[in-house]
């Protein structure tokens, strides 16, 4: 419902202003909650604060964190992509197979990324030019990509890769894994790009009101297709890095990853209605979910209970958001 502007509100106290700013900025809310988890957990178990645990959590969430960039952009444009987990698995197996066949590492990596871009292009064309609903289109490509990965490998992991390929996955810089540094750089880069470049600002117009975007002279289909290509490429990158870290291509990797990524992005402030969300928010969503999982593992909560908790967190985050919005309407 649209309401008149409330520009002459009684001056609220500084405190309530701060609280409302926190509630309205998802990034801040999430940061506070992440801090909360860290503080509580460090009292509960000393091992939580150890460098090796942080390392493990950080490295473990790199695939999700890389893919969430694309997903957040798609969500802001009013779309989404369910095929990311499958594309990640496909690129990891294809790169591994190419390496086994003796293709030089750089060439294999580039081909893996191109594969992801092609998958994204296919999604983009199906959704924009042909007009298939994103749910249906990416559900289809999800199944196809996974199927190809399984057919190529007959369901087995591809290992015995050349040792040099494992470098990126294992190397560290000042004690920080290269994977983590790379992921963080991508997050910062894309967060800034989405906030400040003309190209990515168009995404929000398309998500908020596609017709209006078209009437404003924005090339809606082109922008949409590029967003899908970007997402496919990022999923493929996550696959290549995963293969490098595990030193094998796994056709079953990233099962149900698309749902985790979607959940994290939504917890981070994106919305399936489109037009909102930031990369930073989505990334914090990934961190939040990863920490909750980690905390529960440390507390020896069963994996089945972890699913229940994550589901509850997702619903609560969205419900809280709705309440805050209604308050401010």
């Amino acid at each position: 419902m649209s309401l008149q502007t409330l520009d002459k509100q009684d001056a609220p106290s500084l405190m309530s202003k701060v609280i409302s700013a926190c509630l309205h900025t998802r990034e801040i809310t999430l940061l506070l909650m992440i801090l909360g988890i860290v503080v509580v957990m460090s009292f509960v178990t000393p091992y939580f604060l150890s460098a090796s645990n942080f390392r493990a959590v950080a490295v473990g969430m790199t695939p999700t964190a890389i893919i969430v960039i694309g997903m957040a952009i798609l969500l802001a444009s009013g779309g989404f992509d369910l095929s990311v987990g499958s594309v990640m698995a496909l690129s990891s197996t294809v790169v591994a197979l190419l390496l086994l066949a003796g293709v030089p590492i750089p060439v294999a990596v580039v081909l893996g990324l191109v594969l992801g871009a092609v998958a994204g292009l296919a999604n983009g064309i199906l959704i924009t030019v042909i007009g298939i609903n994103p749910l249906v289109a990416t559900l289809g490509t999800m199944s196809i990509a996974r199927g190809i990965a399984l057919v190529l490998t007959e369901g087995f992991s591809v290992s015995s890769l050349p040792p040099a390929f494992g470098y990126i996955g294992k190397a560290s810089l000042f004690g920080i894994p290269l994977l983590v540094i790379l992921t963080l750089s991508l997050i910062v880069l894309f967060d800034l790009a989405v906030r400040h470049t003309r190209f990515f600002r168009q995404i929000y117009f398309i998500g908020a009101n596609e017709k209006a975007a078209m009437l404003s002279g924005i090339a809606v289909n082109r922008v949409r297709i590029i967003a899908y290509i970007l997402t496919g490429t990022l999923a493929a990158l996550a696959g290549v890095l995963l293969a490098s870290r595990l030193m094998s291509g796994t056709p079953t990797a990233g099962n149900a990853l698309e749902l985790q990524v979607l959940a994290a992005a939504v917890i981070g402030g994106a919305s399936l209605r489109g037009g909102e969300g930031t990369i930073l928010g989505a990334f914090l969503g990934v961190v939040f979910v990863a920490l909750i999982n980690n905390a529960m593992t440390m507390l020896a909560v069963s994996i089945y209970w972890q699913m229940i908790v994550i589901g509850a967190v997702l619903v609560c985050a969205v419900a809280l958001d709705m309440l805050v919005r209604r308050q401010s309407a």
Binding site: Y204, A208, N209, A213, S216, I218, G275
Partner: peptide, 14 residues
């Protein structure tokens, strides 16, 4: 207009 975006961004959409 695109609802959630600012007045200024809307004026210069794209």
């Amino acid at each position: 207009l695109a609802g959630g975006l600012s007045v200024a961004e809307n004026i210069f959409a794209g």
